[in-house]
């Protein structure tokens, strides 16, 4: 699991690589917290290279979404592979988290 952060326009783009499961969910949480702290920009979580995410990882995304929401920051996830898109649809989280097909679309919603 790897997390890379860059600033693009008025957003923080966090690219997530590899696998997130209960063995490294705490690490993922810490990486997201570090990446999004000291900023008031909205956050795009790009999952293009995310291979697997377990429920422990979903919990981290959910907690992040909630904490950003509570400080009026936007949060968008993008570029989900089909199996990972399925996980979001089955869990119903696609209804409470903004999911976009590509990074460009995600950034466009941040401008709005």
């Amino acid at each position: 699991m790897n997390v890379n952060t860059e600033t693009s326009g008025n957003s923080l783009v966090v690219a997530l690589d590899g696998r997130v499961d209960s063995s490294n969910a705490a690490e993922f949480n810490a990486a997201l917290e570090t990446a999004t702290a000291d900023s008031d920009l909205g956050v795009v979580l790009d999952c293009e290279n995310l291979q697997y995410i377990s429920s422990a990882g979903l919990r981290v995304i959910l907690t992040t979404a909630k904490s950003l929401q509570s400080s009026q920051r936007k949060f968008v996830i993008c570029t989900l592979s089909n199996p990972i898109q399925d996980i979001f649809v089955i869990s119903g989280f696609d209804q409470i988290i903004n999911i976009q097909g590509s990074r460009a679309e995600a950034l466009a919603t941040m401008e709005a």
Binding site: L62, V89, I90, S91, G92, F93, Q95, I96
Partner: peptide, 30 residues
């Protein structure tokens, strides 16, 4: 279905289908 893997319906003839989702979100979130 609150965010759970859809159960499998197995018919007498051996065909299977997954029970369609109901659009429910996992519990405890909102």
């Amino acid at each position: 279905n609150g965010g759970h893997n859809p159960p499998v319906l197995l018919h007498e003839d051996g065909t299977t289908e997954q029970l369609p989702l109901t659009g429910g979100v996992a519990l405890g979130v909102m």
